[in-house]
C-alpha cells in the first residue's frame, strides 16, 4: 500500500459523482482490480463470508446425509466433542505437551540456525564450509529419519524433539543466511569506514539489520514445525494432540479427530498472530510516523 495509492483512494471516496461537472467521468470501482487495495470493511466481510460458506456447506452436507453420520459429524457435534475432550478427557494435558514440544524443539533449532545463518551470510568462508552440509540435509525429508530416531531414542520425547528439530533447522539456517546476505553492503562499508572492527560491525550493523527478516523466517518455519509435530505424534506417542487423534480413530470418534484438527489450526493461527504482533512492536521503527 503506497502513499500514492491510499491518497488516490481517499480522493476517490470523498468525491461524489456530481462534484465532477463536465470532467472525466469517475472510473467505476471494479470488483477485481490487479494489485489494487480494497477497503478494510470489504476485506473483513469477505474474510467472514468464506467461513460462513464453509460451515454452511458442511451443515448442508451433513443434513443431506452425503456421508455416514459417524464419518461426517456436523460442526455442532465437533464443538461438543471439543468441550468433552477438555472437561472429561484431560485434553488440555495433550495440548500442553504438544505446545511444549513445539516450543522446545523450535528454540533449539533457533539456537543453532540463528548464529549459524548469520555467520554463513556474513562470511563466505563459513558459507563455503557449512553450505554443502546444510543444503544436503535440507533436501532429505525429515520423516525419513523416523525409523532411525525410533531405534536410537525409542518412542521418547527426545525422538519427537529430534524430528521437529531436523524438520526445520536446515531451512531456517538457509533463510537466515539469505536474509543476512541481503543486508545492504553500504551499511557494512559505512560502519568500517567509521572505524568499526569485524565484531562491532557484526553486532551493531549486520544483526540489527537482518533481525526483522529473521523473525519473519521464524514465523514461516514455526508453521512447518506444526506439520512435523503431527507426524511425530501420529506415529508413536501416548500423549499430544496427534496421539489423541489416533486414539480417537481407534474408537471411531471422528468428531474428536476433527476437534483435534480445529485445535491445531487455532494454535497455529495464535502463534502466527503473536509473532506478527511481536514483530510490529519490536521493529516499530520500520513503520512510518513512529517517533
Amino acid at each position: 500500500m503506497t502513499l500514492a495509492e491510499s491518497s488516490a483512494e481517499d480522493i476517490d471516496k470523498a468525491a461524489p459523482r456530481t462534484a465532477n461537472p463536465g470532467g472525466a467521468r469517475r472510473r467505476k470501482r471494479r470488483l477485481f482490480e490487479f494489485k489494487s487495495d480494497i477497503p478494510a470493511s470489504w476485506s473483513i466481510t469477505l474474510g467472514i463470508l468464506v467461513w460462513v460458506l464453509f460451515f454452511g456447506f458442511w451443515e448442508f452436507a451433513v443434513w443431506q446425509n452425503w456421508a455416514n453420520d459417524i464419518l461426517l459429524p456436523g460442526p455442532g457435534k465437533v464443538l461438543s466433542a471439543l468441550y468433552t475432550l477438555f472437561t472429561e478427557e484431560s485434553f488440555l494435558y495433550d495440548v500442553v505437551v504438544s505446545v511444549t514440544r513445539i516450543l522446545v524443539s523450535f528454540a533449539l533449532a533457533c539456537l543453532v540456525a540463528v548464529p549459524l545463518g548469520i555467520l554463513m551470510g556474513s562470511f563466505r568462508t563459513v558459507e563455503a564450509f557449512f553450505n554443502p552440509l546444510v543444503s544436503a540435509w535440507r533436501y532429505l525429508p525429515a520423516p525419513a529419519f523416523i525409523p532411525l530416531l525410533l531405534m536410537w531414542l525409542g518412542a521418547s520425547d527426545a525422538q519427537k524433539l529430534a524430528l521437529l528439530f531436523l524438520g526445520v533447522v536446515w531451512f531456517l539456517t538457509t533463510l537466515i543466511m539469505d536474509h543476512t546476505k541481503s543486508v545492504p553492503a553500504d551499511f557494512v562499508r559505512t560502519a568500517v569506514t567509521l572505524g568499526g572492527n569485524r565484531l562491532q560491525v557484526l553486532r551493531t550493523v549486520v544483526v540489527p539489520a537482518a533481525l526483522p527478516d529473521i523473525l519473519v523466517a521464524m514465523r514461516q518455519m514455526l508453521a512447518v514445525s506444526w506439520t512435523y509435530l503431527v507426524i511425530a505424534e501420529i506415529i508413536a506417542a501416548d500423549v499430544g494432540i496427534g496421539a489423541m487423534m489416533m486414539r480417537a480413530k481407534r474408537f471411531l470418534h471422528v468428531d474428536q479427530i476433527m476437534a483435534g484438527i480445529v485445535v491445531i489450526g487455532a494454535l497455529g493461527l495464535l502463534f502466527d498472530f503473536l509473532l506478527k504482533k511481536f514483530h510490529g512492536i519490536a521493529f516499530a521503527y520500520l513503520e512510518e510516523n513512529v517517533r
Binding site: P184, D186, F187, R189, T190, T193, L194, V205, P208, A209, L211, F283, Y285, L286
Partner: peptide, 12 residues
Amino acid sequence: GMVFQSYTSFPW
C-alpha cells in the same frame, strides 16, 4: 569516513 549515494542511515 565515507558517505555513499545509497541511504545508509541505520533504520533501527
